[in-house]
């Protein structure tokens, strides 16, 4: 349907749009491709203080490794430093956070969208104020009680904290999505004798996927890229990828290995590419299907 609208676009406008999009994609993706390329060089080239073009030609990479490209960064991160362990932990954290966030969020968001009582506004406002709280302050407040009750350091603790921190956003986003789903859908189901929960499960869940997937994408990115919570609440052996990458960067007193961090970041982006490819269809098809009824 949208493509049929696009079909009527005049040629100059299409050229303008395409030009703009290409420009944007270059701006958005260039640093990443620069990094991808540089991850196969040594630090002295990628972060060359002599000439930026060294990152392209790689004289030090040649001098040190004998070839124009090197897999040292990847080998060091994945094999020597067992980065895959951190990847595994991230997988556990991310899957749990997304699932629990969406489970809590869809229930709450649905209720907020359908209630119509005055307190709904205030609940949403309080959630907003909660979200304004700087994460750093929250996390430093958790430390003492978590240590005292022996909750510190475990994956479930970090997961539930990330879920809670993410709830205000999830609630807001899902509430606005549910508000767009017409009320008569579930109300007619209830007239047919369904309970509220049955109506939610049988009528709403099937049409809510687009909103859920978009919200899930943000939960995913929050959990995936979180540093404040995971660095402070997880023990060394339960570390996720981002704190692990941070530890490759060294300390004030000692030098780290930046190329391990660069390679780790590049390789951690690959699964995301697949993920977006899989779910972008869902976003489009699901949403359009839901919209037809609107």
């Amino acid at each position: 349907m949208t493509s049929s609208v696009a079909g009527h676009r005049s040629l100059p406008l299409q050229a303008l749009l395409a030009g703009f999009l290409i420009l944007w994609i270059v701006v958005a993706a260039f640093p990443f491709f620069w990094t991808l390329w540089g991850s196969f060089k040594v630090e002295g080239d990628f972060f060359s203080r002599a000439d930026w073009a060294n990152a392209l030609t790689g004289p030090m990479t040649r001098a040190e490794t004998g070839g124009a490209f090197t897999g040292q960064g990847y080998y060091g991160a994945w094999i020597t430093n067992e980065f895959w362990r951190a990847g595994l932990n991230t997988l556990i954290v991310v899957v749990s956070v997304v699932t629990i966030s969406l489970a809590f969020g869809t229930l709450g968001g649905y209720a907020l969208a359908r209630s119509g009582h005055r307190y709904v506004f205030w609940i949403l406002m309080i959630a907003l104020v909660f979200r304004a709280m700087p994460h750093l302050t929250l996390v430093s407040g958790y430390l003492l009680p978590f240590f005292q009750w022996n909750l510190w350091g475990h994956l479930p603790t970090a997961i539930i904290v990330l879920v809670a921190i993410n709830q205000p956003f999830t609630l807001w986003m899902l509430t606005s999505f549910f508000q767009n789903i017409p009320k008569d859908l579930d109300e007619s189901a209830m007239v047919d004798g369904c309970s509220r929960f049955q109506a939610f499960r049988l009528v709403i869940i099937p049409v809510m996927w687009p909103g859920v997937i978009t919200t899930g994408l943000f939960s995913f990115l929050l959990a995936y890229n979180d540093f404040a919570v995971t660095a402070m609440l997880l023990d060394q052996q339960n570390q996720t990828m981002i704190p692990r990458i941070a530890s490759f960067l060294g300390t004030t007193q000692t030098k780290g290995n930046v190329m391990f961090a660069v390679s780790a970041v590049v390789s951690a982006t690959a699964p995301l590419f697949l993920l977006v490819m899989v779910f972008q269809r869902q976003i489009v098809s699901g949403l359009t299907a839901g919209a037809v009824k609107g």
Binding site: T2, S3, A6, R9, Q14, L17, A18, L21, W24, I25, A28, A29, P31, F32, T35, L221, N225, F227, I242, I245, A246, L249, A261, V262, V265, A268, T269, L272, F273, V276, M277, Q280, R281, V284
Partner: peptide, 25 residues
């Protein structure tokens, strides 16, 4: 939204890159 459907997936991914790559690195 105006480009052919086939190209949208990659376009979405590349547009998301600034948000995906951890700010740390």
């Amino acid at each position: 939204n105006a480009i052919p459907r086939l190209l949208r997936g990659p376009a979405i991914f590349f547009s998301l890159l600034p948000m995906i790559v951890t700010p740390l690195v």
